[in-house]
Design a binder for these strands. Structure first.
Lengths: 147, 147
DNA sequence: GGCTGTCGTAACTGTAATCGTTACAGCGGA
DNA sequence: TCCGCTGTAACGATTACAGTTACGACAGCC
């Protein structure tokens, strides 16, 4: 599968902002997050823009600008992030519509649509079980670098 | 998401072969399947080649050549097809390794890896619950075209 | 009011995956 | 020998995403 790092990077950004705020800071800049994620600030701003549209973060402009959480880490789930950041369905139908004169060609899309819907429902349920609070906890539980 | 139609087309091909064999035919050709799926025979041959490597179908060459099922539709699950046809994991890590000097950058990948593994395990479990027999049944249950 | 730092966004490039297509060698029964 | 189909390489088109540069917009601060 064309693996997608958007969910990973978005979770990274949220965890970073959350930890930074717990250390007493008001806002985090896209530059700081980009340094941690080893990428470009614009990539972070684009992702956080989608998270803002979903109501997960807020941004300030002007001097002393930056990003802050709009909700507690404990109330944000990976499903919230997934829906904010991943547009399409997990599995796609054919690019061109199959031969409607063929029994299989006619029935395959309704059949697969129903099956895929069930599977995605389960996926969403699993994603909804993981909060960003847990993500940050797991992050901090990672073993230190051996010296 | 960059939606992938490989699983859909592979299931289509298997259902088509299965139904064709139940109608008394020995083998199906990539040309026939491609006509039903409204695509190119080479695309079908490539997909079926991967399914053959996974032991799901067999192919004959020479005159009267074509494809046949290596196992009953009832014993093939969408998980078998998924594993044969989709290479990578569902969610990817960062393209470049995050800043290991940052607490979040250091811990994010182990944390997400663990979470993703759990989720993919659930996905596989769901895929394993659907047999190609059920897919074909759903295909045939699709309502006829209204005249 | 101007300065400054950051957001917000457009535009473009590079890279990778997939699909579609053409071409052709290989196989094996008739 | 002939013929139909497999097997596979090669190439172009399309799409998605990451990365980058550039620049306007905003708002606190001097």
């Amino acid at each position: 599968m064309s693996a997608n790092s958007r969910l990973t990077t978005a979770a990274h950004a949220l965890a970073w902002i959350g930890l930074y705020q717990r250390q007493g800071h008001e806002v985090a800049t896209s530059e700081q997050i980009a340094t941690s994620a080893n990428t470009n600030p614009v990539v972070i701003r684009r992702l956080l823009g989608e998270l803002r549209r979903a109501g997960l973060v807020e941004s300030r402009r002007g001097a002393g600008a930056g990003w802050s959480l709009a909700r507690e880490l404990g109330s944000i789930t990976l499903l919230d992030v997934y829906e904010a950041v991943e547009p399409g369905p997990l599995f796609a139908m054919h690019r061109t519509t199959p031969d409607q004169g063929c029994v299989v060609g006619h029935g395959i899309q309704p059949a697969m649509r129903g099956i895929y819907q069930d599977i995605e429902e389960t996926l969403r349920h699993e994603l909804a079980r993981v909060t960003l609070e847990k993500v940050l906890r797991d992050v901090l539980a990672a073993p230190r670098q051996p010296l």
